[in-house]
Amino acid sequence: MTEKKHVITRRDFIRSGSCAVMGSLLGLPLVSRAAGQTTKKSRVVLIRNQRATDGYGSLDRGTVVQMLDNAVSVALGTKDPAVWRKIANPDDIVGIKSNVWYRLPTPPELETAIRSRLVEAGVKAQNISVDDRGIENNPVFKRSTVLINIRPMRTHHWSGLGTLLKNYIMFVPQPWIYHGNACERLGVIWQKPQIMGKTRLNILVMLTPLFHGVGPHHFSRGYTWPYGGLIVSTDPVAADATGARIIQAKRNEHFGKDRPISPRPLHIEAADTTFGLGNSHPDRIELIKLGWEKDVFV
């Protein structure tokens, strides 16, 4: 350990008024901003519907697909029915990066809906693939020109939160080498050539998020709740930061006290401040809330 090296410690967070949670997500100055990062606000759409789910394992397909359509239109700023042509054109090859964690997978209904919308936009069916753990050897993903990122949000042993940013960890052959320091360096993966600049849409599924984990498998149905939401954005960092605020608020409510996400989801703020992948600070996020307002938490 060299004396001169700049080390970020807990005291940096205490000085900033809160060591409780998520550093710069709450406006804490951390490290210098990545060069060339945009100062433009990121639009994030949070859409909710009470009918979307009754709780863990249930889903109203029609409602959820309608939510997806509405949210995508608002996120991309158009009511044009051909909004999906802004995401992919007929010549594109589209990889839909899903998540198969069997306790809380990406709902197949949403995967199917996205596939259908892409076909309606003119993308050839054979040029669309939904995959998670097989993406490294998936021929569509290998040739992909467009990526769509979709996963449910949940707490996570090592990264604090299983996020859209973390969902791309399967693009690397040895995911565990990114697990150090609460997976802070996940943003590196997004700068790899096979990924960089290809992601046109990020969908964070907040239907029944997991806000706390227990046991080796980090799961209990008792720590999910029917939030009935989707978070949609072209900016994965902004979408994750918004989802993180919801999870934190739910934890505080459930436990009746400040109960920080553990470990701190450093990778979200690092994706902003170190890797320049998007905006994590609420001041730089244009949050548009649609639908059900009860216990929205943000």
């Binding site: 080390v7 410690t9 807990r10 697990h179 320091n181 470990p263």
Partner: peptide
């Protein structure tokens, strides 16, 4: 060190070796 940071965040480097 990762386990310590998990339970009580100290720093982004292993300053306690």
């Amino acid at each position: 060190p990762v386990m310590l940071n998990y339970h009580y965040y100290i720093s982004d480097e292993n300053i306690l070796n």
